[in-house]
Design a protein around this nucleic acid. Structure first.
Lengths: 100, 100
DNA sequence: TTGATTGTTCGTATATAATCGAACTATAGG
DNA sequence: CCTATAGTTCGATTATATACGAACAATCAA
């Protein structure tokens, strides 16, 4: 894998984004990225198998929520906060305001 | 059916609520209720079969989003706007602000 | 080049969800 | 009581998600 495709937020529907956020594992990933900034996949796995995490990161990417940058052997993830906020104002803030 | 049980919003998780909103049929129902206020099930079916609608209303009820009141032969639905707003401040507003 | 590390992809199993016809329940009006 | 109307419940089908082991690819360091 050389690098990832990240969708334009304009092409992401709110249904798609809400679905991505409705899974507890993914919501947890989003919360941690919001709190701590960039993190590798392994740093967020909570003991889950790599293939499961890979799946969840793919869903988060396809929903425009997460950007993944390859840095050597690690894949570093960040929240696409500004872009999501521009497309869906207030949504991510409201979700993250809820206690996890 | 004599009447419905409506969950306390305190018992609704954000994952549950986000999942309920992530379906296009249900999101459409929520949008219409927000715009036009109380409506019967049939008024919102968009030509879909009754059993399908019944399913979606049940999901919306279980997520604390919709209150259903029995009025004779009709079941009238409303958005539980204030309660949802108290539990998840800004969330519904952010969702409804997005063009449908 | 070999080995260790990080994450993807594939395949399969399992679980959850959506769809919808058919039979049923409840209410209202003749 | 009979009939029409509005929704629910049941059951079956199909679709979509999740979970995860195993094999693979890419990078780095020795």
């Amino acid at each position: 894998m050389r690098n990832y495709a990240h969708p334009d937020l304009a092409d992401v529907s709110i249904e798609h984004l809400l679905h991505a956020l409705s899974d507890p594992v993914r919501l947890d990933i989003v919360r941690q990225l919001a709190r701590n900034g960039e993190a590798s996949c392994a740093a967020l796995d909570g003991g889950r198998p790599k293939s499961s995490m890979s799946h969840h990161f793919r869903v988060l990417r396809s929903a425009g929520l997460v950007h993944t940058r390859i840095a050597g052997v690690q894949h570093m993830n960040t929240l696409r906060r500004e872009e999501v906020d521009k497309r869906f104002p207030g949504l991510l803030g409201a979700v993250l305001r809820v206690a996890g």
